[in-house]
Structures are given as structure tokens and as C-alpha cells.
Design a protein around this nucleic acid. Structure first.
Lengths: 136, 136
DNA sequence: AAACGTTAGTTTTAATTGAACTAATATAAA
DNA sequence: TTTATATTAGTTCAATTAAAACTAACGTTT
């Protein structure tokens, strides 16, 4: 049956993605982070001007908990505090370069897959590939 | 640049996989399980005749801990005990249907993607798709 | 007696919290 | 303008809670 062959192709494509994922996450030293911490980074990444209070609300925990959580993330070099210029009580929680890369790992991995595709296929194959995927 | 289009295609294909993943994991009620428990299921799935002692060795914990771990998995309906026929001291740890499905979610999701591909593309497109993926 | 798993109770560890605290700001009366 | 008062943002710290794993003792089967 044809499905067997399709399955092999799907599996191969996914494996390619997984390998890129693994390679990048290794390079970023991502294995030191817990699943929760990864989740935190994503929330911080997509929230403008994240403060401790805002973060506490989002996570539905108290502010001391946020202090604890953020301190751990700072120790891991994935987050930094940035004091607000006009109100010095306020500290923004910002991702470091490392933190941002980790938060956007799926995107980076996809980029890598794109590079592989662009490097291996010729122009006509690329057009065909894009056209076929578009139909799904 | 062509990469933009390739990226869109890669992203779309991955999204398709993620959606299938999500749909199945929802249907299986997988969100009740912790990450560790998912890990346990995978270990149980790939180990023949898993006993409490063997599981304790693999996880490098004591047998009472395994008892507790397994009891929790039983409560979640993903695992069951099966007494050995010829030696009634021994209990095997077996996945339930639900547990097996959860352990093999990535496979199931890939199957679903395959079905979608088989349903949408015609024979020629499928051949092309397979041929292109093979080159990666 | 030895092997397999369970039960009961303890230890350990991490996460969370409430309460008190510092620092910065806002408000408004003197 | 200055000064007193209250409020807000985040921190520190001690205490609690909850989960995970352990030891020791036990029942059952071989």
C-alpha cells in the first residue's frame, strides 16, 4: 500500500525537524531548564513590558513566588531585570539573548530545516515542494 | 527571497502535525498526565514483561516507589497489573489501550498526517512528495 | 529460606505562602 | 515648595505544604 511510503516520508521529515531541534537545544544548553521554566520563557517572550506583578497575575501565584522563579531564571542566564526609567519601583523582566533563542527554539529549528531544503533541492523541486504542501 | 516561501511550507507542514497531535492528545485526555508519567508509559511500552523490580532498576528507585508510581498510573487508567501465571509472586505492568495510545501518540499523529496526505494529494503528487523528501 | 511486591511511617526536597520590610512614588495639606 | 501620609512594587524570611523517595517490617508465593 502507498501509505507505507507516505509514512516513511512523513517520518523522515519529522525526524529532520527533531534533529534540528536537538542540535540547537544542545547548543543552547537547554537541558538545564525544566519544562516549567521553558513555559515561563515563552510567556515572557510574548508579553510586552512584563513586570513582577503582571507575571504573578498571569501565573496566578504570589509575588514572592515570582521573585523566586525569576531569580532562578536569572541564574540560568535566560532572563534579566531592567529597571523602569521613569518609575524606579518597577522592574521589567526581559529575556537575554540565550533566553530568547530558547523561547523561540521551534522557530530556529524550522529555519534550519529551511536551510537544509534550500541547500539540497534545486529550484524546480522547491517550487514543487511548496506547491504540494500548499494543497494540504 | 525563496526562503520565505520554503519557511511558510515547512511551518504549515509542522502545524499540520501539531494539530493532529493536539487533537489526539485531547481525545485521549492526555493533559491529566505529568511529563514524568508520559515518560514512564514510553518505558513500559518498549520493555517486555515489565515487573516492579525491573522497573525499579530502570528508574533507579526503590520498589516501594515503583508501587506508588504504578498505583498512580492505574488510577489514571493507563496501566494495569497482570499476575504471572506460573509464578504468582510476579506482577507484570501492562499498558491499557489508553496508555498504549498515549505512549504512541507521535506515531498516531503521524498516521493522521499520512491519512490527510493520502486523502488530499493525487497519486502523482504523492510520488513527487515522496521523491522530494527522500532527497533531504 | 528466598523472592516479589505492599504497607506504614519517615526523610528530603522543592514550591508556595503570609507577614514584615525597603524603596520609590503619589497625594495633598501646611 | 516642603513635608507628612498613604500607596505601590518588589524583596526577604520563616513557616507550611506537597510530592517523591526512602527504610523497615510484613504478607504471599515459591
Amino acid at each position: 500500500m502507498k501509505k507505507k511510503l507516505i509514512y516513511e516520508a512523513v517520518k523522515k521529515f519529522n525526524s529532520l525537524g527533531h534533529e534540528c531541534n536537538l542540535e540547537i537545544s544542545d547548543k543552547l544548553g537547554m537541558s538545564e531548564l525544566q519544562v516549567n521554566q521553558l513555559h515561563y520563557l515563552k510567556i515572557i517572550d510574548r508579553t510586552d513590558d512584563m513586570t513582577f506583578g503582571k507575571f504573578a497575575e498571569i501565573l496566578k501565584v504570589t509575588k514572592p513566588s515570582v521573585t523566586e522563579i525569576v531569580n532562578k531564571l536569572i541564574k540560568l542566564n535566560v532572563v534579566k531585570k531592567k529597571q523602569c526609567t521613569w518609575d524606579k519601583r518597577i522592574f521589567y523582566i526581559k529575556l537575554t539573548e540565550k533566553g530568547r533563542n530558547i523561547a523561540r527554539l521551534p522557530f530556529l529549528a524550522e529555519q534550519k530545516v529551511v536551510d537544509i531544503i534550500a541547500g539540497v533541492l534545486d529550484d524546480e523541486e522547491i517550487d514543487t515542494f511548496i506547491k504540494i504542501i500548499k494543497k494540504l
